[in-house]
Write a protein that binds this DNA or RNA. Sequence first.
DNA 1: TGCTTGACATGGG
DNA 2: CCCCATGCCAAGC
Length: 110
Amino acid sequence: MACACSCPLQDFTLKVIQTIAAIPAGKVATYGQIAAMAGNHRAARQVSRVLHTCSHKYQLPWHRVIGAAGKITLPKDHSSHLKQKKKLQQEGIEFGLSDTIDLSLYQWPG
DNA sequence: TGCTTGACATGGG
DNA sequence: CCCCATGCCAAGC
């Protein structure tokens, strides 16, 4: 339910935010998955945008959102990449040899 | 109002 | 394994 008066967010975006916020610790979700849950499986890119725009505002667990390959989508140059990896490890998620997460074990079923 | 952008996804080289 | 091209859609400017 989105209030059209004071909520600048669209319905899709709001769903995305709620979906991300609902990801439990120790689990991860892919952009496409979140987009699909929000209603548009093609809007995976917007999920990333929502993450950037709202993570700081809504305190979203952005580190639990990864790419479909089970990898962190941030460039290694970025300082947040290592941060995200550490956070996930602290939540019990184990990484493979190439910083790869086994989605069959850790992907959030929704 | 309209074009550009983007923490993606998928497939091929 | 890594890099490139295409589709797709909303947020930003």
